[in-house]
Amino acid sequence: MKTSQNYWGVPKWVLAIALVGALFVVLPLLAMVVRVNWGQFIPLITSQSSIDALLLSLRTSTIATLLCIILGVPMALVLARTTFPGQRILRSLVLLPLVLPPVVGGIALLYTFGRQGLLKAPMNFLGIQIAFSTTAVILAQTFVALPFLVLSLEGALRTVGTRYEAIGATLGAGPTTVLRRITLPLVLPALVSGAVLSFARALGEFGATLTFAGSLQGVTRTLPLEIYLQRETDPDAAVALSLVLVAVAIIVVGLANRVGSNSRLGPNVLS
């Protein structure tokens, strides 16, 4: 009897749709590769403004990712391991930057940390100016990237459950020891995945950065902003820099996948 499935157990129509989806992602990247002026590729990506933008993006995205880990891990733990009134509302607010237009996030940050923002009194008292600085870039990137880590880690925490943590507690391990020796090792792949997503989102951030930090070369002009500006004056440079950004993202994701695949995880309470 004939069947619509191949020997992998996947229907052929599913494979066909998957192929269309893959082409939808790959073809634009291929078109960009074809469009690159390879004869001038190196000069286009090694201009001073391009190098400044790339280094700034890598530096700020790395710091933003570290902030996402520092802030996101406790947030995910609280959302996954505790119950309190208003938890669903808080979770929705934490994940709100996922659906907000980035420019709206930039406006929100500006009216919080700007010179006339909500925190202007304590910031003026301390002599702190954040808006339109490198710090503003980092905050903008953290704001839009944080939900990716929280969402990934919270889902993993709910999936693994609390069985191993309960066993560790019955053996005398304190909450911090349980967190360090059991919980975090169990969800390490999700933590790595969430950190990679956060880094990639921070690296590609545009709207919130432009609104909250502006575009000053070497200070706030990240690579996406540089690409946007170059598109108006030098399309070849914009395409070349876009390809650099794609290459960096591929390298980061590849390294993260390798780290995740090489991880040997499991609860370790007694050692």
Rank of each mutant, 00 (worst) to 15 (best):
Lys2His: 11
Ser4Cys: 03
Tyr7Ile: 05
Trp8Asp: 00
Pro11Ala: 13
Pro11Ile: 11
Lys12Leu: 14
Leu15Gln: 14
Ala16Cys: 09
Ile17Leu: 15
Ala18Cys: 10
Gly21Val: 14
Phe24Ile: 03
Phe24Thr: 04
Met32Phe: 04
Met32Lys: 14
Val33Phe: 14
Gln40Asp: 14
Ile42Asp: 06
Thr46Met: 13
Leu54Ala: 13
Leu56Cys: 12
Ser57Asn: 07
Arg59Leu: 09
Ile63Cys: 03
Thr65Tyr: 00
Thr65Glu: 04
Leu71His: 06
Gly72Ala: 00
Gly72Asp: 01
Pro74Gln: 06
Ala76Met: 06
Val78Gly: 04
Arg81Gly: 06
Arg81His: 05
Thr82Asp: 07
Gly86Met: 10
Leu90Glu: 03
Leu90Ile: 15
Arg91Met: 09
Arg91Ile: 01
Ser92Ile: 06
Ser92Ala: 15
Leu96Cys: 00
Pro97Ala: 07
Val99Gln: 03
Val99Asp: 04
Val99Pro: 02
Leu100Lys: 09
Pro102Trp: 08
Pro102Asn: 10
Pro102Lys: 10
Pro102Gly: 08
Val104Glu: 11
Gly106Tyr: 01
Ile107Asn: 06
Ala108Lys: 05
Ala108Gln: 11
Leu109Lys: 03
Leu110Phe: 05
Gly114Tyr: 08
Gly117Lys: 11
Lys120Tyr: 13
Met123Ala: 10
Asn124Gln: 15
Phe125Gln: 14
Gln129Tyr: 08
Ile130Arg: 09
Ala131Asn: 11
Phe132Asn: 15
Thr134Leu: 05
Thr134His: 07
Ala136Ser: 12
Ala140Thr: 06
Ser152Arg: 05
Ser152Phe: 02
Ser152Tyr: 04
Leu153Trp: 04
Glu154Gln: 10
Glu154Pro: 00
Arg158Thr: 12
Arg158Asp: 07
Thr159Leu: 10
Val160Glu: 05
Gly161Ala: 00
Gly161Ser: 02
Arg163Gly: 01
Tyr164Ala: 15
Ile167Gly: 05
Gly174Gln: 12
Pro175Gln: 13
Val178Gln: 14
Arg180Trp: 11
Arg181Gln: 13
Arg181His: 13
Ile182Met: 10
Leu184His: 08
Leu188Glu: 06
Ala190Gly: 06
Gly194Phe: 01
Val196Glu: 01
Val196Phe: 02
Ser198Glu: 00
Phe199Tyr: 04
Ala202Phe: 00
Leu203Cys: 02
Gly204Ala: 06
Gly204Gln: 03
Ala208Ile: 06
Thr211Tyr: 07
Thr211Glu: 12
Phe212Ser: 08
Phe212Gly: 12
Gly214Val: 02
Ser215Asp: 13
Gly218Glu: 10
Val219His: 08
Val219Met: 13
Arg221Phe: 08
Thr222His: 05
Pro224His: 11
Leu225Val: 12
Leu229Met: 15
Glu232Asp: 15
Thr233Lys: 07
Asp234Thr: 11
Pro235Tyr: 07
Pro235Met: 04
Asp236Tyr: 06
Ala237Asp: 07
Ala238Gln: 01
Ala238Gly: 03
Ala240Gly: 08
Val244Gly: 02
Val246Trp: 09
Ala247Asn: 01
Ala249Thr: 15
Val252Leu: 01
Val253Phe: 03
Val253Thr: 10
Leu255Gly: 11
Ala256Glu: 02
Ala256Met: 01
Ala256Lys: 02
Asn257Trp: 00
Ser263Met: 15
Leu265Gly: 08
Gly266Ala: 11
Pro267His: 09
Ser271Asn: 13
